[in-house]
Simulated assay, not measured.
Amino acid sequence: MTVDGPGPSRARRVVVVAYPDVELLDVACPGDAFASATRCGALPGYRVELVTAGGRAVRSSCGITLTPERALERVPPGVDTLVVAGGHGHVAASGDPTTVEQVRRIARDSRRVVSICTGVSLLAAAGLLDGRRVATHWRHAAQVAAAYPAVTVDPTPLYLRDGRLYTSAGVTSGLDLSLSLISDDHGPALAREVARTLVTYLHRPGDQAQISMFLASGLPDDAVVRDLANHISSHLADDLSTERLAARAGVSVRHLRRLFARHLDTAPSAFVRSARTEAVAYLLSTTALPLDAIARRCGFRSTETLRQAFRDRYEVTPSRYREQEFRCQSQA
Protein backbone atom coordinates (compact mmCIF):
# COMPACT_ATOMS: atom_id res chain seq x y z
CA MET A 1 0.00 0.00 0.00
CA THR A 2 1.78 3.10 -1.22
CA VAL A 3 0.30 6.50 -2.00
CA ASP A 4 2.47 9.36 -3.21
CA GLY A 5 1.39 12.96 -2.79
CA PRO A 6 2.07 15.76 -5.23
CA GLY A 7 5.80 16.23 -5.31
CA PRO A 8 6.96 12.95 -3.63
CA SER A 9 9.96 14.68 -2.07
CA ARG A 10 7.61 16.98 -0.19
CA ALA A 11 5.10 14.33 0.84
CA ARG A 12 4.65 13.53 4.51
CA ARG A 13 5.68 9.91 5.13
CA VAL A 14 3.07 7.83 6.96
CA VAL A 15 4.32 4.41 8.03
CA VAL A 16 1.69 1.84 9.07
CA VAL A 17 2.96 -1.13 11.09
CA ALA A 18 1.15 -4.45 10.65
CA TYR A 19 1.76 -7.96 11.97
CA PRO A 20 0.09 -11.38 11.75
CA ASP A 21 -3.60 -11.32 12.77
CA VAL A 22 -3.80 -7.54 12.44
CA GLU A 23 -7.24 -5.89 12.19
CA LEU A 24 -7.70 -4.92 8.55
CA LEU A 25 -9.75 -1.80 9.33
CA ASP A 26 -7.03 -0.57 11.68
CA VAL A 27 -4.73 -0.52 8.65
CA ALA A 28 -7.26 0.66 6.07
CA CYS A 29 -8.93 3.50 7.98
CA PRO A 30 -5.80 5.64 8.46
CA GLY A 31 -4.34 4.51 5.14
CA ASP A 32 -7.40 5.51 3.13
CA ALA A 33 -7.93 8.73 5.08
CA PHE A 34 -4.41 9.99 4.36
CA ALA A 35 -4.56 8.78 0.77
CA SER A 36 -7.89 10.56 0.27
CA ALA A 37 -6.44 13.75 1.74
CA THR A 38 -3.71 13.62 -0.90
CA ARG A 39 -6.27 13.13 -3.66
CA CYS A 40 -8.33 16.01 -2.22
CA GLY A 41 -5.40 18.37 -2.67
CA ALA A 42 -3.44 18.28 0.58
CA LEU A 43 -0.15 20.13 0.15
CA PRO A 44 2.10 18.60 1.13
CA GLY A 45 0.36 15.30 0.52
CA TYR A 46 0.98 12.00 2.24
CA ARG A 47 2.96 8.95 1.20
CA VAL A 48 1.54 5.90 2.98
CA GLU A 49 3.51 2.68 3.23
CA LEU A 50 2.82 -0.60 4.99
CA VAL A 51 5.68 -2.30 6.84
CA THR A 52 6.07 -5.58 8.72
CA ALA A 53 8.84 -7.35 10.59
CA GLY A 54 11.18 -8.87 8.03
CA GLY A 55 9.07 -7.47 5.22
CA ARG A 56 6.93 -10.61 5.34
CA ALA A 57 3.34 -10.75 4.08
CA VAL A 58 0.88 -11.05 6.95
CA ARG A 59 -2.58 -12.53 7.15
CA SER A 60 -5.12 -10.17 8.72
CA SER A 61 -7.72 -11.35 11.20
CA CYS A 62 -10.38 -11.46 8.46
CA GLY A 63 -8.23 -13.69 6.25
CA ILE A 64 -7.00 -11.09 3.74
CA THR A 65 -3.23 -11.19 3.24
CA LEU A 66 -1.33 -7.90 3.25
CA THR A 67 1.92 -7.44 1.35
CA PRO A 68 4.19 -4.74 2.85
CA GLU A 69 6.29 -2.29 0.91
CA ARG A 70 9.36 -2.83 3.05
CA ALA A 71 10.68 -4.43 6.23
CA LEU A 72 10.11 -2.67 9.53
CA GLU A 73 13.87 -2.92 10.11
CA ARG A 74 14.59 -0.98 6.91
CA VAL A 75 12.40 2.05 7.54
CA PRO A 76 14.73 5.05 7.20
CA PRO A 77 14.62 8.09 9.50
CA GLY A 78 12.34 11.03 8.78
CA VAL A 79 8.92 9.47 9.31
CA ASP A 80 6.18 12.05 9.72
CA THR A 81 3.49 9.82 11.23
CA LEU A 82 4.05 6.35 12.64
CA VAL A 83 0.82 4.35 12.90
CA VAL A 84 0.72 1.05 14.78
CA ALA A 85 -2.40 -0.93 13.95
CA GLY A 86 -4.27 -3.12 16.41
CA GLY A 87 -5.59 -6.62 16.07
CA HIS A 88 -5.89 -10.01 17.72
CA GLY A 89 -2.17 -10.53 17.15
CA HIS A 90 -1.16 -7.57 19.32
CA VAL A 91 -0.05 -9.73 22.25
CA ALA A 92 2.34 -11.78 20.14
CA ALA A 93 3.60 -8.70 18.31
CA SER A 94 4.23 -6.77 21.53
CA GLY A 95 6.19 -9.76 22.81
CA ASP A 96 8.47 -9.86 19.78
CA PRO A 97 11.75 -8.08 20.65
CA THR A 98 12.56 -7.14 17.04
CA THR A 99 9.16 -5.57 16.38
CA VAL A 100 9.17 -3.67 19.66
CA GLU A 101 12.72 -2.38 19.21
CA GLN A 102 12.02 -1.20 15.68
CA VAL A 103 8.82 0.57 16.74
CA ARG A 104 10.85 2.29 19.47
CA ARG A 105 13.54 3.28 16.96
CA ILE A 106 11.14 4.70 14.39
CA ALA A 107 9.06 6.49 17.02
CA ARG A 108 12.13 8.22 18.38
CA ASP A 109 12.32 10.79 15.58
CA SER A 110 8.80 10.65 14.13
CA ARG A 111 6.80 13.87 14.27
CA ARG A 112 3.89 12.00 15.78
CA VAL A 113 3.17 8.46 16.91
CA VAL A 114 -0.27 6.90 16.61
CA SER A 115 -1.83 3.65 17.78
CA ILE A 116 -5.14 2.26 16.63
CA CYS A 117 -7.00 0.05 19.10
CA THR A 118 -4.71 -2.59 20.65
CA GLY A 119 -1.74 -1.24 18.72
CA VAL A 120 -1.26 0.64 21.98
CA SER A 121 0.29 -2.58 23.35
CA LEU A 122 3.30 -2.23 21.06
CA LEU A 123 3.84 1.39 22.09
CA ALA A 124 3.56 0.38 25.74
CA ALA A 125 5.97 -2.52 25.27
CA ALA A 126 8.41 -0.06 23.69
CA GLY A 127 8.27 2.06 26.85
CA LEU A 128 6.70 5.01 25.09
CA LEU A 129 3.59 5.30 27.25
CA ASP A 130 4.79 5.08 30.86
CA GLY A 131 2.99 7.63 33.00
CA ARG A 132 0.59 8.53 30.20
CA ARG A 133 -3.17 8.23 29.78
CA VAL A 134 -4.11 6.32 26.65
CA ALA A 135 -7.19 5.07 24.81
CA THR A 136 -7.90 1.63 23.44
CA HIS A 137 -10.92 -0.50 22.61
CA TRP A 138 -13.14 -0.80 25.67
CA ARG A 139 -13.22 -4.59 25.33
CA HIS A 140 -9.42 -4.85 25.65
CA ALA A 141 -8.76 -2.02 28.12
CA ALA A 142 -8.49 -4.22 31.22
CA GLN A 143 -6.12 -6.62 29.45
CA VAL A 144 -3.81 -3.81 28.32
CA ALA A 145 -3.92 -2.14 31.76
CA ALA A 146 -2.97 -5.38 33.50
CA ALA A 147 -0.07 -5.99 31.12
CA TYR A 148 1.31 -2.44 31.46
CA PRO A 149 0.60 -1.08 34.97
CA ALA A 150 2.70 2.05 34.34
CA VAL A 151 0.17 3.13 31.71
CA THR A 152 -3.25 4.61 32.53
CA VAL A 153 -5.75 3.02 30.15
CA ASP A 154 -9.01 4.89 29.62
CA PRO A 155 -11.71 2.78 27.91
CA THR A 156 -14.07 5.73 27.42
CA PRO A 157 -12.88 8.21 24.73
CA LEU A 158 -12.62 7.58 21.01
CA TYR A 159 -9.08 8.91 20.99
CA LEU A 160 -6.61 10.82 23.15
CA ARG A 161 -3.69 13.12 22.46
CA ASP A 162 -0.69 13.50 24.74
CA GLY A 163 1.88 15.72 23.07
CA ARG A 164 2.98 13.90 19.91
CA LEU A 165 1.41 10.61 21.03
CA TYR A 166 -2.09 9.72 19.84
CA THR A 167 -4.02 6.64 20.91
CA SER A 168 -7.47 5.56 19.77
CA ALA A 169 -10.19 3.04 20.39
CA GLY A 170 -11.08 0.26 17.99
CA VAL A 171 -11.57 0.10 14.23
CA THR A 172 -13.54 3.09 12.88
CA SER A 173 -12.32 5.42 15.63
CA GLY A 174 -9.04 5.19 13.72
CA LEU A 175 -10.82 7.06 10.95
CA ASP A 176 -11.98 9.74 13.40
CA LEU A 177 -8.43 10.17 14.67
CA SER A 178 -7.00 10.25 11.15
CA LEU A 179 -9.46 12.97 10.13
CA SER A 180 -8.43 14.92 13.22
CA LEU A 181 -4.75 14.64 12.25
CA ILE A 182 -5.56 15.79 8.71
CA SER A 183 -7.44 18.74 10.19
CA ASP A 184 -4.39 19.58 12.31
CA ASP A 185 -2.17 19.51 9.22
CA HIS A 186 -4.42 21.17 6.65
CA GLY A 187 -7.43 22.66 8.43
CA PRO A 188 -11.02 21.50 9.02
CA ALA A 189 -12.20 22.29 5.48
CA LEU A 190 -9.96 19.63 3.94
CA ALA A 191 -10.84 17.16 6.71
CA ARG A 192 -14.52 17.68 5.92
CA GLU A 193 -13.83 17.10 2.22
CA VAL A 194 -12.05 13.84 3.07
CA ALA A 195 -15.00 12.82 5.26
CA ARG A 196 -17.37 13.49 2.37
CA THR A 197 -15.13 11.55 -0.01
CA LEU A 198 -15.18 8.57 2.35
CA VAL A 199 -18.95 8.97 2.79
CA THR A 200 -18.68 9.27 6.54
CA TYR A 201 -20.36 11.79 8.80
CA LEU A 202 -18.25 14.56 10.33
CA HIS A 203 -15.51 12.93 12.34
CA ARG A 204 -16.41 12.53 15.97
CA PRO A 205 -14.55 14.44 18.69
CA GLY A 206 -12.02 12.45 20.67
CA ASP A 207 -13.78 12.91 23.98
CA GLN A 208 -17.00 11.39 22.69
CA ALA A 209 -17.57 8.10 24.48
CA GLN A 210 -16.84 4.87 22.62
CA ILE A 211 -20.10 3.65 24.07
CA SER A 212 -22.39 6.53 24.88
CA MET A 213 -23.53 6.83 28.49
CA PHE A 214 -26.91 5.81 27.14
CA LEU A 215 -25.43 2.57 25.79
CA ALA A 216 -23.16 1.77 28.72
CA SER A 217 -24.51 -1.78 29.01
CA GLY A 218 -23.92 -2.46 25.30
CA LEU A 219 -25.42 -1.48 21.98
CA PRO A 220 -29.22 -1.91 21.94
CA ASP A 221 -30.49 -5.20 20.60
CA ASP A 222 -33.76 -3.59 19.58
CA ALA A 223 -33.71 -2.81 15.86
CA VAL A 224 -36.05 0.16 16.21
CA VAL A 225 -33.89 1.87 18.83
CA ARG A 226 -30.68 1.09 16.97
CA ASP A 227 -32.04 2.53 13.71
CA LEU A 228 -33.27 5.69 15.42
CA ALA A 229 -29.98 6.20 17.29
CA ASN A 230 -28.11 6.07 13.98
CA HIS A 231 -30.65 8.34 12.32
CA ILE A 232 -30.40 10.91 15.11
CA SER A 233 -26.61 11.07 15.00
CA SER A 234 -26.58 11.75 11.26
CA HIS A 235 -29.59 14.11 11.02
CA LEU A 236 -29.09 16.49 13.93
CA ALA A 237 -30.55 19.51 12.14
CA ASP A 238 -33.78 17.69 11.27
CA ASP A 239 -37.02 17.60 13.22
CA LEU A 240 -36.19 14.97 15.84
CA SER A 241 -39.23 15.39 18.00
CA THR A 242 -40.47 12.28 19.73
CA GLU A 243 -43.56 12.35 17.54
CA ARG A 244 -41.51 12.48 14.33
CA LEU A 245 -39.19 9.70 15.52
CA ALA A 246 -42.18 7.55 16.44
CA ALA A 247 -43.64 8.11 12.99
CA ARG A 248 -40.34 7.13 11.36
CA ALA A 249 -40.25 3.93 13.41
CA GLY A 250 -43.92 3.17 12.83
CA VAL A 251 -44.75 2.94 16.53
CA SER A 252 -46.76 5.03 18.94
CA VAL A 253 -45.11 7.80 20.95
CA ARG A 254 -45.90 5.92 24.15
CA HIS A 255 -44.30 2.71 22.83
CA LEU A 256 -41.22 4.60 21.62
CA ARG A 257 -40.71 6.07 25.07
CA ARG A 258 -40.97 2.60 26.57
CA LEU A 259 -38.39 1.28 24.08
CA PHE A 260 -35.88 4.05 24.84
CA ALA A 261 -36.39 3.62 28.59
CA ARG A 262 -35.91 -0.15 28.34
CA HIS A 263 -32.89 -0.18 26.02
CA LEU A 264 -31.14 3.14 26.64
CA ASP A 265 -32.42 4.10 30.07
CA THR A 266 -33.41 7.54 28.85
CA ALA A 267 -36.15 9.37 26.96
CA PRO A 268 -35.94 9.99 23.18
CA SER A 269 -35.81 13.75 23.75
CA ALA A 270 -32.90 13.41 26.20
CA PHE A 271 -31.00 11.22 23.77
CA VAL A 272 -31.46 13.80 21.01
CA ARG A 273 -30.37 16.65 23.28
CA SER A 274 -27.17 14.81 24.26
CA ALA A 275 -26.30 13.92 20.65
CA ARG A 276 -26.75 17.52 19.59
CA THR A 277 -24.69 18.83 22.50
CA GLU A 278 -21.81 16.47 21.69
CA ALA A 279 -21.86 17.78 18.12
CA VAL A 280 -21.73 21.35 19.42
CA ALA A 281 -18.62 20.51 21.46
CA TYR A 282 -16.96 19.10 18.35
CA LEU A 283 -17.72 22.17 16.23
CA LEU A 284 -16.60 24.54 18.97
CA SER A 285 -13.22 22.83 19.20
CA THR A 286 -12.56 22.33 15.49
CA THR A 287 -14.12 25.32 13.69
CA ALA A 288 -14.51 29.07 14.02
CA LEU A 289 -18.22 28.94 13.20
CA PRO A 290 -20.29 31.49 15.14
CA LEU A 291 -22.61 30.10 17.78
CA ASP A 292 -25.78 30.79 15.79
CA ALA A 293 -24.44 28.77 12.85
CA ILE A 294 -23.51 25.92 15.16
CA ALA A 295 -26.97 26.04 16.71
CA ARG A 296 -28.60 25.69 13.29
CA ARG A 297 -26.29 22.90 12.20
CA CYS A 298 -26.89 20.92 15.37
CA GLY A 299 -30.63 21.41 15.53
CA PHE A 300 -30.98 23.91 18.37
CA ARG A 301 -33.73 26.49 17.88
CA SER A 302 -31.69 29.32 19.40
CA THR A 303 -28.28 30.07 20.81
CA GLU A 304 -29.80 30.39 24.26
CA THR A 305 -31.25 26.90 24.05
CA LEU A 306 -27.83 25.68 22.94
CA ARG A 307 -26.10 27.47 25.81
CA GLN A 308 -28.40 25.94 28.40
CA ALA A 309 -27.98 22.42 27.04
CA PHE A 310 -24.22 22.89 26.85
CA ARG A 311 -23.93 24.17 30.43
CA ASP A 312 -26.04 21.27 31.65
CA ARG A 313 -23.77 18.74 29.94
CA TYR A 314 -20.28 20.27 30.28
CA GLU A 315 -20.73 22.66 33.21
CA VAL A 316 -19.10 25.47 31.25
CA THR A 317 -20.33 28.01 28.70
CA PRO A 318 -19.71 27.34 24.98
CA SER A 319 -17.41 30.36 24.71
CA ARG A 320 -15.34 29.22 27.66
CA TYR A 321 -15.15 25.69 26.27
CA ARG A 322 -13.92 26.96 22.89
CA GLU A 323 -11.34 29.18 24.57
CA GLN A 324 -10.01 26.26 26.62
CA GLU A 325 -9.87 23.95 23.60
CA PHE A 326 -8.01 26.45 21.42
CA ARG A 327 -5.56 27.19 24.25
CA CYS A 328 -4.81 23.48 24.64
CA GLN A 329 -4.29 23.10 20.90
CA SER A 330 -1.94 26.07 20.73
CA GLN A 331 0.13 24.75 23.63
CA ALA A 332 0.35 21.20 22.24
Rank of each mutant, 00 (worst) to 15 (best):
196 R>T: 15
287 T>E: 13
204 R>P: 00
295 A>I: 02
321 Y>P: 07
28 A>S: 12
94 S>A: 04
119 G>I: 13
33 A>N: 05
231 H>C: 04
54 G>C: 00
51 V>G: 08
329 Q>H: 09
118 T>D: 13
235 H>F: 04
299 G>P: 11
6 P>H: 13
74 R>A: 10
328 C>Y: 14
221 D>F: 11
235 H>V: 12
163 G>T: 05
183 S>D: 15
183 S>H: 15
301 R>Y: 01
27 V>A: 05
322 R>H: 00
190 L>S: 04
236 L>I: 13
325 E>W: 02
306 L>W: 14
283 L>Y: 10
219 L>W: 13
220 P>R: 14
77 P>L: 04
225 V>H: 04
285 S>H: 07
77 P>R: 08
36 S>V: 13
297 R>S: 07
243 E>S: 12
65 T>R: 02
252 S>F: 06
149 P>L: 00
298 C>H: 01
88 H>G: 09
36 S>M: 15
73 E>K: 04
268 P>T: 09
280 V>I: 06
66 L>V: 03
46 Y>W: 12
250 G>D: 07
38 T>F: 06
123 L>I: 05
250 G>P: 11
130 D>R: 14
255 H>C: 00
97 P>L: 12
278 E>W: 14
74 R>L: 11
260 F>G: 09
228 L>E: 02
177 L>T: 03
32 D>Y: 13
123 L>D: 10
294 I>V: 15
126 A>E: 10
126 A>K: 03
116 I>L: 13
89 G>H: 01
71 A>G: 05
127 G>E: 01
